[in-house]
Write a protein that binds this DNA or RNA. Sequence first.
DNA 1: GTTTCGACGGAATACGCTCT
DNA 2: AGAGCGTATTCCGTCGAAAC
Length: 357
Amino acid sequence: MARDLTTSPVDRKKILEDNDAIKAVYDNLGFEGVRFEGRFRFTKGQVARFYEVDVRTIERLLENHSQEMQNNGYELFKGARLRGLRLAFLQHLEQSHVSDIDVGDISQIYENELVANKAPSLGIFTFKSVLNIGMLLTGSQRAKQVRSAILNIVIDVMNKRLGGSTKYINQREEEFLPSALREFNYRKVFTDALDKYIQANKFKYAQLTDKIYRSIFREQSKEYRKILCLNAKESVRATMYSEVLDLIASYENGFADFLKKKFEQNESNPIRLSEANLLFHEFEQLTEQLYEPLKEKARVLMATRDMAFRDALHEKLKDYIDTVSLDDIDKFLGEKSKALEERIVENKEIFIRLKDR
DNA sequence: GTTTCGACGGAATACGCTCT
DNA sequence: AGAGCGTATTCCGTCGAAAC
């Protein structure tokens, strides 16, 4: 089941504890609070208006998640502390009168909430707790926007922390190495089949490989290179996600077997490349229903991840772009994500076994 | 059927006015 | 000046309505 910020306390906590990310979100969101005791503060009313929900809705979230809210800085202000806060709001208001164009709007908010009223106590949010509310509101359109902004910024911050280059971010996932190894083996089966059953032709590998790519994600290797800015020496497959590699392996293995059968039916005469191309279409149609769900999944993952992590747009897959999932953020940027070198060290025994074969 | 939302109203509290 | 009272306002529990 897909994880969701509105239902996962652990994920909310993880994001809210990332201070760099929170700061970046604050700079981007344009929801300004007033500094008091070193933190930005917001009244409950401001928060409700910001998310375009009823104050009571906010209050219910406060009831149901009181511990979480308090941990993130929500407090009930009263007495001297409330007076101090009022003063800070007032000062902020005066300052913004000098510089801000949109004064009417702002002053209205402060007059209603704090300056003119005599509230004995006020529920006051910090920026973290404001975001926390945003992560919990399920109905509010605004909250959805905020969640997606949060995720984008979190991705950005984590990316920078990893050093910026996302070309091989696909390799940081736990599944990449096993998938790459599997695919490597099936690639061998595939090229062996092309060697054995198709007449000699120096284009045969490239042409049929491109056909597989086109069938799965609609791009030829040349286009793919261009989108990911790969130079001639860089391997296309080294940049592919495990799900895509698995699918390629299935195609390679399946088509190798298909070729073999056709070859045998043909009384073991080598097949011409042009014929092999036609055979691929036949294979594609035969397996279409079988692969469709997997292709759909691979396209969504590839388009979505490349957009989020690599800033790369696959024009032909743009209808497949979705919002990147929390699981993906974890896989590629989280604690479990690792550079390939570390994975290889961890999986040393596998390589030793491979070598022995 | 369950979850989410919003209205209502009582309890609590601080401010300001008046009276002593 | 200080006590006492009324007023304004928020907090929060409850309940019914709406949305999913």
